[in-house]
Design a protein around this nucleic acid. Sequence first.
DNA 1: TATTGAACAAATCGTTAAATAGTTCAGAGA
DNA 2: TCTCTGAACTATTTAACGATTTGTTCAATA
Lengths: 200, 200
Amino acid sequence: MNPKDMKYRELFSVSLELFALFGYKKTTVQDVADRLGMTKGNLYFYVKNKQDLYLKTITHALSSWRDSVKQAVDRENDPVDKFRTMALKSVDYIENNTMLRQILMKDPSIFTLSPSEDRFYDINQSAMTIIQEILNQGIGEKRFYPVDVEHVTQYFFSIYVMFLIKTYVKSDTSSSRTMFLEALELNIRGLLLTHGVTPA
Amino acid sequence: MNPKDMKYRELFSVSLELFALFGYKKTTVQDVADRLGMTKGNLYFYVKNKQDLYLKTITHALSSWRDSVKQAVDRENDPVDKFRTMALKSVDYIENNTMLRQILMKDPSIFTLSPSEDRFYDINQSAMTIIQEILNQGIGEKRFYPVDVEHVTQYFFSIYVMFLIKTYVKSDTSSSRTMFLEALELNIRGLLLTHGVTPA
DNA sequence: TATTGAACAAATCGTTAAATAGTTCAGAGA
DNA sequence: TCTCTGAACTATTTAACGATTTGTTCAATA
């Protein structure tokens, strides 16, 4: 890894921590520069402005999240297993990433139900392809009902965002875990082309 | 109907219109009193304060919505028909109620994904019983999978709120209609105890 | 290419006074 | 007794002000 990439990694790591701790407004570029042992002027050699620093930092964190889920999904073969793994790994990742969780709580607009005002549209779009590929595989293998892939992908992504909002923006931790698992199985049954009569 | 109830109906009607037109902040107590042909002082004979006027007005509007859906559901017998009617009637009602729609757009906090900060908790709770009764009937008649009724009810209500936010708070009208219909059928398949292999 | 530090610009904050809007209440019809 | 008025009162919002903090630029430098 070249030295500039190293600098960026350090930069994103430091600013993620500060943004998680103080939020966007309370974190000054001076704070970030201090922690990096440089002057704030020099920070502008790496990013356009404070907003750009924030966007790049969050995007970097969301990409790691996506990659982690994608990796777990790729270890499975069966589309149902992939679907379940995707859902569970997504939750597991955020559950074990305190800083990202804190940032979501401090900045609810990171997860919006409106694609048109989504500042992280590209990374979210790429997260949606994970869903899309699983649906296509499941339908191709005649395991899944031939749903409208585009709209059902959007729907599942919206549900995922809804859960994140419910659980981490509003902290409705109590029942949302059980609700999540019930919903997962309900959606899997809704996807399957046939399913037997085997209640849990 | 006694004259005081009449006054209340008129009051809610007038203030719903004004709140829809100008929003909470821009609507003054004076405005409402003027439209009712009374002084603002006298308004305090009917409501505790401005906030109370707003809450009572919205609650009244949401109750009408609920009642309309409940009535439509009660005309059906089959739990699947009831479920589908509930979903479609809910959308149909808001689609044809411009003032309520305008209020939702002006005050996004009316529909929250967090029960604990829901100012209209009671009326929303009573709306949830419609879902709950359908689920109980479906399971009782061995048509529905024996899901965890409480959590699945919460889940469906959350999806309903999510759609309202997507469609009316963020105005993402474009794809959300198709998404809604796809989701409806997916959820019905997820509920059914068995379903045949009959893709649309 | 990467960095500094000073200079500059933009945004925020704390305070103030004036205007507006919300609320109370004694008293007056019906 | 129930409904209402209108004036008095209180609370909130708005605009303006300078002071301060913070974000951004850039010529000089290693």
